[in-house]
Structure formats: C-alpha cells, structure tokens
Design a protein around this nucleic acid. Structure first.
Lengths: 339, 339
DNA sequence: AACGCTAATCTAAACGTTTCGATCATGTCA
DNA sequence: TGACATGATCGAAACGTTTAGATTAGCGTT
C-alpha cells in the first residue's frame, strides 16, 4: 500500500479511503491510485487488516470425521454458505478424540477466527471453558453440550429413532439389535432413548444383550454385529445408530453367511447417496443435511452480523424415515426359514 | 503480551524471548512471566505474529467437490497430515466452476496462506498467472495444468482406464459405452486416451456414439446413460470415468428396467467405502487415496520446510482395478438373453 | 583499577493496515 | 471582507507481535 501511495503521490490514508470507500476521494486522485494499483499489482494484505480490525472473516469448523457422509454433506453446505458470505473456513477433523478437538479449537482461536461451528466430541467440560473464555460466537452442530448455552442446530434424534424402531416393530420384529456409538454425546444418548421408548411403547423389554456400543468406526459395527449374530436367539433386525458402523454390520452379516433382508432386517441412521441404487436398498433415517448446514451457517452469520447478545437459539430439525427394502416383515422371515 | 510484561515487571521482548525460547531468560523472570501468563490467561495472537513473521502456518486447499468420495478421502488425509505438522487448512470447494476457483484462490492468497494444494478446474490460464504472481509454493492435486511447472501428484489415469477397458474387452465386450467429464482437465483427457488405446489395442473402433460427456454430476451420468441405452444397438458395458456420475448410470439402468450385471456390465473410476457391501458390488479402479493425500502434503511441507528452489517433483501413482461383480462375460449375457 | 567478555534484559523499529483528528483550500453567507 | 461550513487530503498512532541492536550487570584478567 505504501508503494501504491508513493507511486500515486498520495498518502496511504487516501489509498485506504479509496479501497474501502470510507471517504470520498477526488476523481483525479482515484484515477492515479487505481493506475498505481494496477501497475504494481497491489493486493491488500488481509492479515494486517485483520490485526487492525480485530476480525478475520474466517470461521472455524470442527467435525469428528469428514468421511462420515453426514458430515461430508454438512461441511459442504456450510462451506458454500460461508463462501457466499465472503468468509473462509478452516476445517478440522477430530477423529472423535477429545484432546485433538481441544487442541484444534485452541489453534483456531489463536488464529482469531470470527466464529466457530463445532460438532463436539466427548465430554464438553473443556469445550465449555474454551467457549466461555474466547468471546467468539459458537454454534453447536449435531451435538449439544451440557452447560454450554449457545446457538445450536440438532436433530430430534429421539423421535427419529422412535419412528424407525416402531416401524420395525410393526413389521413384527420383537428382538431388535441396537448398535450405538459412545453414549457421552447427546445424539447417541437421545437415539438410545428413542429405541427404549419405542420398545416400551409396544410392551417389549429392553434387553441388555441386544444393545452393543462401539466407537463409530466400521470395525466397531462389524464387531458389534458379530456379537449380536452369535447370540443364541439372534435378533431378527438390527438398527445401527451411526452410518459408518452400518457398513460393518453389512459385512458381518455377509461374512457369517446370512443375507439382508432375507435372513435379517437392517436399518440405520443417516442416509447416503448410494442408498437407493444398490441392493439391498437400505432403510435409513435421513437427516436434512442441507437445512442443518444452512441453519448452522445462518445462526453464526447472524451473530457475526452484529446481534451478539440475543438469547441463544436452539434449532431442532426432524429426521425422515426413508423406507426402502432392507427390512422385511417377520412373517416372511419365518416363512423362508420353514421353506 | 503487553499486559503480561507489565504484570511480570519485564519488557515485552523478554516475554517474547521466553515464549519462543529465542533467548535465555533467568529462572527468576521466567517464573514471574509464567505466573503472569497463567494469571492473565494470555494467548499469543497468531495474526500479529503472522504479520510480523510473514508466515501464517495455514495452507489453502481447493477441490471441486468435497462430496465426491475421492476428494472426501484425500481432503481428510491432507487435513490430518497438516494438523500433525501444526498447520491449519482452509478448505474451498469450487463446484467445478472456473470463476469460483479463481476467486477462492485469491481469497486464500489474500489471507497469506503459506502454501496451496489445488485440484484445478477448467482451463488453467488464470491459475497459471496467479501461481506465478503469488510466490507461495503450490502443489497440484489429481489434475495437472499445462504451463504450470510445479509439484504435483496425479494418477496414471491412462494406464488405469486402459486396464479397466482391457478387462471388459477380455470379458468379451465389444461395444463399451464411455462416460467422461468435461475434457479440459488432464485426468479426463488421459482416461479418454486410455479408453481409446485399449480399444485400438484390441483392434476395435472408437465409436463416437458410445462416448458421452457430462459435467461430473449424478444427473449428467444419468442423462448420458439414458442416451447410451436408447441407442439402437446398445452397449453391453458402460464405463464411467467419474464416481458421482456412476450413480446416475445405475439409476438410469434401473429406471429403464434393466439390471446390472445381468443385462449390462458397469465399471467406474474411484472406489468408495460401500462398494463391497451392496449388490452389485461395483468393479472400480481405486485410487490410492491415502498415498495421494500424504504425498501431496509432504510435497508441500517440504517446500514449506525450506527447499524453495528444488526442481518441481511430479509424482505419478498407480490405480488398481478392483474386480468385483458388476461385470459379466458377454457369453453369459447372450445366454441369459436366450433363456 | 581498568578492561573486556558474557549473559540477561531492554528499547525501539518494523510488519501493513485503519482511522482519528488535523490541515488546507474552496466556496458561501452575512 | 471576514467568518465559517464543506470537502479532500494527510500525518501519525494504533493493532500485537518479533528482533536487531543497545544497555547493563557481573565476573575474571591483567
């Protein structure tokens, strides 16, 4: 900028005024300055600007796994939304690891991001403190955090799973295996509650042997399913509360020599792009990823736009049961078993 | 930092020296300073540091679509690699749009990223100039760019497709439909070449009617497949040079009342996590995503680590044909048609 | 006692912006 | 003609660091 100012024989203040339109500058000087900018190929240094302005027009986004199709989609939507608004987004993946997440959030805060969207992992105690200390707006994504009273957008997980399990019960299933992630995050807890309530509503017992938990990865789903399938009286249906784990479920079913939906019904949380082109077409509960991403972005952009002190808004969206053909009535199962 | 210095009754220079370990400071003052840091909860401002140091420990990463599983995986690997190295990554998705990409690269450069990893879109002319102007190291990912002589990691696309098409030919296929993306990017060009060479090597003609191109999206694959399937003498196999488009291919096959692999064989570029759990298990050419991501990250980290003037390195990795069961010998097709 | 050496500390300038208040010319009004 | 508002421009301080070079104190040599 100094060079531009010299070349145009004006002060840096005038150059700044012209670039930002913060003051009127005469046509004559404008022309000279613009010429100099072109000659020199000047680009404003956003870092210096950030230092002075106290704002970086950058936000931080942390998710557990970008390869989980739910997060892939949401990240994509959020990225687009902020791109449109002229913000850059720094992406971090925590791999469901608490310490990693803390480090990453600190890294983002050090870099003075203007805001944060976080799908928290693990216990939220530290997150709570970090959020309190840093005075940047935070929106919680997908997962709530006890004691952190801030904007959030989540799914009505309990209801979504309730509907899915009820659907299975209506098909005649009585022993429904349930595979969950670690229960220290709100969606897993709520989904579990939905499972229990659906069973209870139908007068069915919640059996400990039918519930298995893993750490969100495919291998965990595989192991959990293996355990369920080796039960003396194995379940006639399995619901996986997490998408990557359902891949493990399908592989376990295949490896043990069974097939879905002929021998066992399967449903899971989170839809994915391939769900309706391959067999079996999986019955899933789909989250409104587009809306979730957009709402999260809007919540943050609103805060960034000024209204810092408005009470936190918590958006709860509805899931949608996508009934396809990975679940069969139990009658059909019995029939095929007799055949 | 000023506050810390005051509280510890030392100069800011001493505080800086202690924090960065750039000079020895007496145990006594160290203790006072550390105490003050804790009391105040001081965090170094990375923006101010960047301004002074001329480095942000942040890199920019632009890809066409994060929802394309190839890029999802690669982005994930790259993000992890830089995270380990203490770098933040700013992610941009260009949606295969040339102007978007230019804008985003400028945005990243304005923010003084230390380096850039770009899977370019469209014609590389502007990219070329931008890269020349900005003197940050750039590594090209997946797609080369004519005239831009810089580090790169790409696949041997030609060979990979050659192998896949030869496989189809060996199965007896003579009319092989080919669906490509827009041909202005190197992988699409090279893959097309691989297709042509495989045909020629087998003494088969390259028929224009069997080649369709689209803009990388599912809908494009759908339309292209519809056209191929409505041909008077329809192809017995279809190869899709891009992953999202193959979903469209499968949907089109289903919608037209055919099934794969019974009526038509399908193979495509890029593997995905579900490829071996659902039916038909798709035959794909898998890219070594882990290696690609890591190599790209290493290339850039090496430059960042100092060696700015070493000659550009271009890494060419090999694809791997994952033979599953979406392709059948033509004999079988004839047989089932007669049955 | 004067000297030089080392280690610890500090002062102050820089990095590239933004912005407040000052300056200065110009035109308007009484 | 003097007072004064207006509009354009500028000087300089500030944002929070890093760092070169200055300063100081302590200590061993001669």
């Amino acid at each position: 900028m100094l060079h531009v100012a010299e070349a145009a024989r004006v002060s840096v203040a005038t150059v700044s005024a012209l670039i930002n339109g913060t003051a009127t500058v005469s046509p004559e000087l404008s022309a000279r300055i613009e010429q100099a900018i072109r000659d020199i190929g000047y680009k404003r240094n956003a870092i210096a600007r950030s230092l002075k302005m106290g704002t970086t027009r950058t936000i931080g986004l942390t998710v557990p796994h970008i390869t989980n199709p739910f997060f892939t989609d949401v990240v994509s939507v959020i990225q687009q939304a902020f791109d449109r608004a002229g913000y850059a987004v720094m992406l971090c993946c925590t791999d469901e690891d608490l310490n990693t997440q803390d480090d990453q959030i600190r890294l983002l805060l050090d870099r003075m991001v203007d805001g944060l969207i976080v799908a928290r992992v693990g216990d939220g105690a530290i997150l709570k403190r970090i959020v309190a200390d840093a005075n940047v707006p935070v929106v919680l994504l997908d997962r709530l955090c006890e004691g952190v009273d801030t904007d959030a957008v989540v799914l009505d997980n309990q209801r979504a799973v309730f509907d899915a399990i009820r659907y299975l019960i209506n098909l005649g299933h009585r022993r429904i295996g349930y595979i969950t992630g670690t229960s220290d995050i709100s969606p897993m807890h709520d989904r579990m509650t939905g499972y229990c309530e659906a069973l209870q509503a139908a007068g069915l017992p919640v059996l400990e042997e039918l519930v298995r938990s893993g750490n969100f990865h495919e291998i965990d789903g595989y192991n959990a399913t293996m355990q369920l399938l080796s039960l003396h009286d194995r379940p006639s249906a399995i619901f996986s509360a997490n998408n990557p784990m359902v891949i493990g479920t399908m592989k376990a079913i295949r490896d043990i020599g069974l097939s879905c939906p002929e021998d066992i019904s399967v449903a899971c949380f989170d839809d994915f792009p391939w769900s309706d082109v391959f067999q079996p077409q999986l019955t899933t509960v789909a989250q409104p990823v587009q809306a979730i991403g957009e709402q999260a972005a809007n919540l943050l952009l609103d805060r960034l736009g000024g209204d810092r002190d408005a009470p936190p808004r918590k958006l709860v969206l509805k899931g949608r049961l996508m009934i396809r053909d990975s679940c069969r009535p139990v009658a059909a199962l019995v029939q095929s078993a007799n055949a």
